[in-house]
Every structure is written in structure tokens, then in C-alpha cells.
Amino acid sequence: MLLSCGGDKTQEVSTDKVKQVTTAVDSPVEEKMTHPAPLPSKEAMPEETTKDGSTKEAITAIRAEYARLQKMLDDGTLRKEVKTFDCEGDPTEGELIRYYEGDDLVVLQHNQGGGHGWEIKQVYLKGGMPFFTLEESGYWTFGGPLNEDETSNTIDYTKEDRYYFQNGVLIRQLTKEFEMHSWETLPEGNEVPNEEVPVTERQDYQDALPYFSDFKKGVVGC
């Protein structure tokens, strides 16, 4: 997923279906070391209950717009621009993908990884402002029991944060953390419940997503 080009490079592609898969916990260690960052998982938009009726209506609208854009991503009907980067003297490398519906920027995806760590940011936009963002980050280590052939198992640690915005203002934030073990089956990420993060004061998307302005302009790198 992560490409190295010895610097920054931008390319335009008219259409290209986005592959969405969950973290592979049974991949060979050699492959994990080469590609530490999994492709982003498709957001499930869980149906958590909300106390405030207006917030519930807003989140329903957010889910509908998310589903519309996600279908266009799956169908490969959005124009995309890809900018890759790597870091000299550092294992970190990554890419920024900007998706357009006509002339409108509607999805930003930033993937970055190196060594044993990785992070992914997916920002969905309407009218030039984010309405939903999914941030994923994690790392892996050797651990657990040895296999019968004396090879090591691995543990993947993942953290996810979800941000819901109405007219550019944060109205809901969810978080979760979970582990994946290569030697046993654990609940998939979408099966792990989210925890509500209290939104106690007015916070706009520029405060919640400090990287957004640079990503929107295509500024990315080390």
C-alpha cells in the first residue's frame, strides 16, 4: 500500500476502485515488516444511541452522506490525485490521496507507516468542510507463544478515533482500542464497542483536525 519514490510525487488517475480490507493478523512476519500499515478498514457507522434528538438526526445525515461517498469510492467513480513520500534516513513512508467529485474535494486519505508502526487518516468532506473523520493508528510487536516450527507470533495494537461534525463543529467523538493476536482469533475491530468521548465545549474542525489544512492543500511529507 505504501509506496517509496525517493521524494514527493503526484499523479492523477481518472478512476480506480479502492480496496478496503481489515488488518491481517496471520501474515508472515517478513511481509509485516515490509508493509507495516494495513489498508484502512471500511467504516461500519455503528448505530450507537444518542440522548440529544438533534444530534441523532445530524448523525443520521452524516451516515447517509458517508454511504453515498463510500459507494462512489467502491465503484471507482471519483477522480483521485496521489502524492507519495518517504523520509530520508527514516523508515517512514506514505501517501496522500485526494478524491474529487467533479471539482469538489470530497475525501482525503493519508497513509503513513515505517518500522513497526502505522497510521491512517480518512476525512470525508461536504461543502469543503469535514463531516466525518476516522483516524487509525497502531503498531505491532513479537509476542505470544512460539509456533510449532519455533517461529514467533505477533501482536497488533490498534487505536481508532471517530469525529462527527455538523456545519464544521464537532458534535460527537468516539474512541476504541483493541489487539489482534496471530495465534488466536479475537473480535474484529468493528465488533469492539466504541467509547463515547464527552464533547464539552464548542470545537471546530480546525481544532480537532490540525492536519486538515495541509492535507487539503496537498502538503505532506516528513
Score class of each variant (00 low, 15 high):
Ala61Asn: 15
Gly127Pro: 07
Arg172Trp: 14
Gly168Arg: 05
Leu96Trp: 01
Arg63Leu: 00
Glu48Asn: 05
Gln122Cys: 01
Gly7Ile: 10
Ser137Phe: 04
Gly218Tyr: 07
Lys9Tyr: 08
Lys56Pro: 01
Glu184Ser: 13
Arg172Met: 12
Thr175Met: 09
Lys56Tyr: 02
Leu39Ala: 10
Val82Ser: 08
Val107Ile: 11
Thr15Val: 07
Pro28Met: 05
Gln206Trp: 04
Ala64Gln: 13
Tyr66Ala: 03
Asp149Arg: 00
Glu43Arg: 01
Glu12Ile: 10
Gln11Trp: 00
Trp118Cys: 06
Val123Glu: 06
Thr77Met: 06
Asp26Leu: 04
Met33Phe: 03
Gly143Tyr: 11
Ser54His: 11
Thr23Gly: 00
Met33His: 03
Leu78Trp: 12
Gln122Asp: 04
Gln11Cys: 02
Leu134His: 11
Leu174Ile: 00
Thr50Cys: 06
Glu57Val: 04
Leu209Glu: 05
Val220Arg: 03
Glu43Gln: 03
Met72Tyr: 08
Asp52Ser: 12
Phe85Cys: 04
Leu186Ala: 12
Gln109Ser: 02
Lys80Phe: 01
Gln109Lys: 03
Gln109Thr: 01
Gly168Gln: 07
Ile97Val: 15
Leu134Ser: 07
Met45Asn: 15
Ser213Leu: 13
Met33Val: 11
Asp52Phe: 08
Asn167Trp: 08
Thr84Glu: 09
Thr55Ile: 08
Glu201Ala: 12
Phe215Arg: 01
Glu160Cys: 01
Pro187Ala: 14
His116Ile: 11
Asp149Lys: 01
Ala58Lys: 09
Phe212Asn: 02
Asp75Thr: 00
Leu186Thr: 15
Lys19Phe: 10
Lys126Met: 12
Pro193Lys: 09
Asp207Val: 10
Val13Gly: 03
Pro145Tyr: 15
Tyr66Met: 05
Val219Leu: 07
Asp74Arg: 05
Leu73Gly: 10
Gly127His: 12
Thr133Arg: 09
Arg68Phe: 03
Tyr157Met: 05
Thr141Val: 04
Lys17Trp: 02
Tyr139Val: 00
Gly114Leu: 01
Tyr124Lys: 05
Ala58Phe: 02
Ala58Trp: 04
Lys126Pro: 05
Gly168Asp: 06
Gly221Asp: 08
Pro40Ile: 12
Glu135Lys: 13
Lys56Trp: 02
Asp204Gln: 15
Ser54Val: 06
Ala24Phe: 10
Phe132Asn: 11
Val25Glu: 06
Asp214Val: 02
Thr158Asp: 14
Gln20Cys: 04
Glu188Tyr: 01
Ile97Ser: 02
Leu39His: 09
Lys56Gln: 15
Thr22Ile: 01
Phe212Lys: 00
